[in-house]
Measured scan of single mutants.
Amino acid sequence: DLSALRVEEVQNVINAMQKILECPICLELIKEPVSTKCDHIFCKFCMLKLLNQKKGPSQCPLCKNDITKRSLQESTRFSQLVEELLKIICAFQLDTGLEYANSYNFAKKENNSPEHLKDEVSIIQSMGYRNRAKRLLQSEPENPSLQETSLSVQLSNLGTVRTLRTKQRIQPQRTSVYIELGSDSSEDTVNKATYCSVGDQELLQITPQGTRDEISLDSAKKAACEFSETDVTNTEHHQPSNNDLNTTEKRAAERHPEKYQGSSVSNLHVEPCGTNTHASSLQHENSSLLLTKDRMNVEKAEF
């Protein structure tokens, strides 16, 4: 173990290094160091905050020279020094078990990766560091076993998940096959086929009936047209017969005018059967003409 005197000496050296690497504005270890034209180094955030307070150039807090945003430059070497100082402080805390008085939040800088452990060898070769390295080497064999167990647990979990997924996939297939086998029997399929065939026959029977009705309507229309044509021909046949009657009536009127007047009046009210309204109107006109002729003949006879 380190003596108290040596611990104090190391602590004083760390404090001196820390004062050199402090920012003059925030009085902390410089984060993202930036250098000016006057070779003074500050935190990048502190300098941008200072420049944004005034429009135009501002003055350096140490030498009062003008500073602009374009004049600022990043210093990589200074950032490396800060990183190495942080590593020294971490090693000091691990070796002594004491917390550094002016320690900052170094938890963000710590890294437990194997590459980081290899890099620590180049920091300080001390008894405390050696003991700590031995402890780490002793704890390393235990870690692979834990990793193997965790991997086995994960693989077993994956296997159970896969088996569950396969079961879920197989179950719908089985149910679907069961439904297909038990849903419709052979008799049901035959009945469905016969039902479809009967429906098709009914459709075939319905369509000819409609065509037959249309044919019957067409035949009825044709018969009505033929009947009207026969009526017209009958009226045409009746007209010459009426003319013959008129000639006979004229002759009778010349011989017996008194008797014919009474008979002509009675004939006005008689309509021949089986004739249309057109034929009756023609008869009325003929009878009126005959009456006028008879009157003329009677007057001539009187004179």
Results as ranks from 00 to 15, higher is better:
residue 7 V to H: 08
residue 9 E to Q: 05
residue 10 V to P: 14
residue 11 Q to H: 04
residue 14 I to M: 01
residue 15 N to K: 11
residue 15 N to I: 11
residue 16 A to M: 11
residue 18 Q to G: 06
residue 19 K to Q: 03
residue 19 K to P: 10
residue 20 I to K: 05
residue 22 E to G: 07
residue 24 P to W: 14
residue 29 L to C: 11
residue 30 I to Q: 03
residue 32 E to W: 07
residue 32 E to V: 10
residue 37 K to P: 02
residue 41 I to T: 01
residue 41 I to F: 04
residue 41 I to C: 03
residue 45 F to E: 13
residue 48 L to W: 03
residue 48 L to D: 13
residue 48 L to R: 10
residue 50 L to G: 10
residue 56 G to M: 12
residue 59 Q to T: 04
residue 60 C to M: 15
residue 62 L to E: 12
residue 65 N to E: 15
residue 67 I to F: 06
residue 69 K to S: 08
residue 69 K to W: 00
residue 73 Q to N: 07
residue 74 E to L: 02
residue 76 T to R: 11
residue 77 R to K: 13
residue 79 S to C: 06
residue 81 L to Q: 03
residue 82 V to Y: 01
residue 86 L to E: 07
residue 90 C to E: 04
residue 91 A to G: 13
residue 92 F to K: 14
residue 95 D to R: 15
residue 95 D to S: 15
residue 96 T to M: 15
residue 98 L to M: 08
residue 99 E to N: 12
residue 105 N to R: 13
residue 106 F to Y: 02
residue 106 F to T: 14
residue 113 S to F: 07
residue 113 S to V: 11
residue 117 L to S: 09
residue 121 V to P: 03
residue 124 I to S: 02
residue 126 S to P: 09
residue 128 G to S: 06
residue 130 R to I: 08
residue 131 N to G: 03
residue 131 N to C: 10
residue 133 A to M: 07
residue 136 L to T: 04
residue 136 L to Q: 07
residue 137 L to D: 07
residue 140 E to Q: 09
residue 141 P to S: 05
residue 143 N to V: 03
residue 146 L to H: 11
residue 146 L to K: 15
residue 147 Q to H: 12
residue 147 Q to W: 02
residue 148 E to T: 02
residue 152 S to Y: 00
residue 153 V to M: 08
residue 154 Q to V: 00
residue 154 Q to E: 07
residue 158 L to G: 13
residue 160 T to Y: 05
residue 164 L to D: 08
residue 168 Q to I: 11
residue 185 S to Y: 03
residue 186 S to N: 01
residue 188 D to S: 11
residue 189 T to S: 05
residue 197 S to C: 02
residue 206 I to S: 12
residue 206 I to L: 05
residue 208 P to E: 15
residue 210 G to Q: 04
residue 210 G to R: 09
residue 212 R to D: 12
residue 212 R to S: 03
residue 213 D to I: 00
residue 220 A to V: 02
residue 241 S to Q: 03
residue 243 N to W: 15
residue 245 L to K: 06
residue 251 R to H: 09
residue 256 H to A: 08
residue 257 P to C: 00
residue 257 P to V: 05
residue 258 E to V: 03
residue 261 Q to A: 11
residue 261 Q to I: 03
residue 261 Q to W: 00
residue 262 G to S: 11
residue 267 N to K: 14
residue 267 N to I: 02
residue 268 L to A: 06
residue 269 H to F: 11
residue 270 V to D: 10
residue 274 G to E: 14
residue 276 N to R: 00
residue 278 H to T: 04
residue 279 A to I: 07
residue 280 S to I: 04
residue 281 S to I: 01
residue 285 E to K: 11
residue 289 L to H: 13
residue 296 M to G: 09
residue 297 N to K: 06
residue 303 F to Y: 08
